[in-house]
Amino acid sequence: MTSNQHNQLSAVVFDWAGTILDFGSCAPMGAFVRLFEKFGIDLTIAEARGPMGMAKWDHIHALGQLPCVAAQWEKLHGKAFSKADVDHLYEVFTPMNAAVVADFADFIPGAVDMVNTLRARGLKIGSTTGYNRPIMDIVLPIAEKGGYVPDNLVCAGDLAAGRPSPLMMYRTFADLGVWPPHTVVKVDDTGVGIEEGLHAGTWTVGLAISGNAVGLSLAEWQALDAPAQQALRETATAQLKAAGAHYVIDSVADLLPVLDDIAAKLQKGQRP
């Protein structure tokens, strides 16, 4: 890459659930609640959503550290929630999540058109996810059938650490052959996904409405009146900004003006 290309965008790296498909990032939620239910633990959807975007093992571990969960676990099982318990729950969780993921694999409106537009502009399309390989083995063929085939896929568990570490992004740079990081944009609906991009040195775009921050299905979102939508939008935007997002938009369908803005900044020598 010559130095003048260091001022041009090279790639956009997308998350999966809540970003490209599964409006509201709904597939894992019920599975987390049912998982803990199986072990006698009451967990709310809001609690289950807290660590979203992390690798699922890390997510289960984080839920086990919640005071309400830790207390229930100790009372029921007579000992503190341990890493061995996380391992056991994770083994139970993967098939539970895999069983429902296909039911929530609808594309977010505008996602495939956006990806096609970016490819037409000469950009590479990368992807990272908090899902593991067995779950993505179900999601990938569904996405492909719908016209979405990113240039790479890095899953939780592929590397020594998942989000918020930058390792999945580093692998993506290598897979796509793109550098430096400031020519890449990370698009994600979770705080840890934004941090993944920041730690890797990329621009970051948070998605307020389509993902975990609001956590409603498309039908539930569309059923709300404008003031209710705006209140949720403001809360979600504040969360993603607090995580460090350079930009926050409703969904991937709104990405083009942001990329144009970033491209203009790069031309002026500005960096994330």
Rank of each mutant, 00 (worst) to 15 (best):
Q230T: 14
A143W: 00
V205F: 07
N4H: 14
E47A: 11
E37Y: 10
V33A: 05
G193K: 00
G64E: 01
D15Y: 04
D188H: 06
P109T: 02
P272K: 04
M96A: 08
E144N: 11
K145P: 02
D85T: 07
A70I: 07
D42H: 13
I135E: 06
V139C: 10
P166C: 00
L216H: 08
A80V: 14
L76G: 11
A143N: 04
L140D: 12
W16C: 10
A156L: 10
Q239M: 13
D188N: 09
K75A: 15
I194F: 01
A231K: 13
L43Y: 02
D189P: 03
I209S: 12
P181R: 00
P227I: 07
G215S: 06
G162P: 03
N116K: 15
K241N: 13
A219N: 12
M1E: 13
A208R: 00
F23W: 09
G78T: 09
A160T: 14
F81N: 01
S217D: 07
N212I: 13
V184R: 04
P109L: 06
N4S: 15
Y148W: 15
L256K: 08
L35P: 02
P141R: 07
F93A: 01
Y148A: 01
L176D: 02
S165F: 08
F104D: 02
A236P: 02
Q65N: 13
D103M: 08
G24Y: 04
M168V: 05
A31I: 07
D58G: 02
A31R: 05
L89S: 03
A219K: 12
M136L: 11
Y131F: 15
D85R: 05
D58Q: 12
A62M: 09
K79Q: 15
W179N: 14
E37T: 12
I108T: 05
L159P: 01
A102G: 10
L9T: 03
M52S: 11
K38F: 10
A263W: 08
A143I: 06
D188C: 01
E74N: 11
L167K: 02
W179D: 14
N132Y: 06
L224W: 08
C26D: 01
